[in-house]
Design a protein around this nucleic acid. Structure first.
Lengths: 211, 211
DNA sequence: CTGTTGTGGATATTTTTATATCTATATTTT
DNA sequence: AAAATATAGATATAAAAATATCCACAACAG
């Protein structure tokens, strides 16, 4: 007994900084750089070296003693930690302004996400292609989720529709929902929801501005 | 001496939760509700009552003792704290996928923002209207900023262009930049930058999912 | 070879943020 | 009228996150 291996919990803030590191490491790798120090990264990110050091240590990034972190190895470590080393099939529900914009974002493949379907209720959108992704009618959600083996839902529908669609998703076995609707979704405990609220950032900006 | 009035610093996390409260209070106000308790709000938001209580106390929301927070007064308090009680003239630089999507978002007027101009370099976009907002050529930035008395910049350009445009904005006297480009901008200390990174949220989702 | 510098690694400290506990008292219930 | 309940308000505690400090040693300059 006493041998529970408590892999030290990684903080949310650290997790949220990882993509930023990843972008920089991709660049460095492109330039053929093999090692990079936390002080260098600190300049790029405007964070403190110690923060970066601890973040990278937390995900097990390999380093050469007293010389810096190994670029290729760190990329692998971060990608593995986030599960971005292989692609999850994702789909979008709601192809409005925001949905279309996200579909147009080419970077998701670097983020472990492959968007393979979209859903909407508007007749003029259904059956069309938006940025190369086919749009199905929302009524087909359950069917297509199973047929295409979809895993992650991106929810960009109006607030009023969000909970109803969420219930459908949960029944269809979806375990991860990235929620852009301004609502708090109610889901079973085994379903993970990540809520994005763009006005939170605006509030932060305005508060800083008033100071 | 010793009479410096240190208005107690409000935490970033509290600030980021304010818009969520505001949405709920708007709804309640629409229903004619005059008082609401922190326990009720806790159910709506999936936060703890104590968090809400402290957040609202922090912005000076008025309450009736042992009965709840006053709906109308709390709206006023939050709006005032964020400076959302009167509109700031904002503009968008970069009318790509994301820029257009944001221009289509009708809610900014509730968030103290009035988007009155947009800028892009692509000839086919310049002089057009996107969601009722006129698109100027980026070369005209400085001129139009002064002529229209613009205050807040929303930056939705590619990473490679972001710093250059930022320099132009700073020279034109802009003091607040809402940055959606995946770069850390360098600005003088009196300029406020709020950086949004959508992949941070995705990272959080993926990390939760792996657990 | 010698001294200097910069580094990851480890640990300690401080600050921030979240959570718990207690109190007096309006409001509601009996 | 009396008892029970729920509330803001205040304070105390715990947890999380950021920051500082120290160390041994690679890398490098001379």
């Amino acid at each position: 007994m006493g041998f529970f291996h408590h892999k030290k919990e990684i903080s949310v803030q650290t997790i949220r900084r990882l993509p930023q590191y990843l972008r920089i490491f991709y660049n460095l790798h492109g330039y053929g750089r093999e090692l990079v120090s936390s002080t260098f990264l600190a300049q790029e990110t405007q964070l403190l070296p110690i923060v970066i050091k601890k973040d990278l240590q937390a995900v097990g990034a390999p380093s050469k003693l007293r010389a810096g972190f190994k670029v290729a190895g760190t990329i692998a470590a971060i990608e593995k930690f986030l599960g971005w080393d292989n692609l999850n099939k994702a789909f979008m529900v709601g192809v409005g302004h925001l949905g279309s914009a996200l579909l147009g974002f080419q970077g998701f493949k670097n983020h472990g996400l492959e968007i393979v379907a979209a859903f909407d209720t508007h007749p003029e959108k259904v059956s069309a292609e938006v940025n190369g992704v086919h749009v199905y009618h929302t009524a087909q959600l359950a069917t297509i989720i199973e047929k295409l083996n979809l895993k992650i839902a991106i929810l960009t529908v109006p607030a009023s529709a969000a909970q109803g669609i969420t219930d459908t998703l949960v029944n269809a076995g979806i375990k991860a929902i990235w929620n852009f609707a301004p609502v708090n979704l109610t889901v079973p405990p085994d379903v993970v929801v990540q809520k994005e609220d763009i006005s939170a950032g605006l509030a932060e900006l305005c508060a800083k501005l008033k100071r």
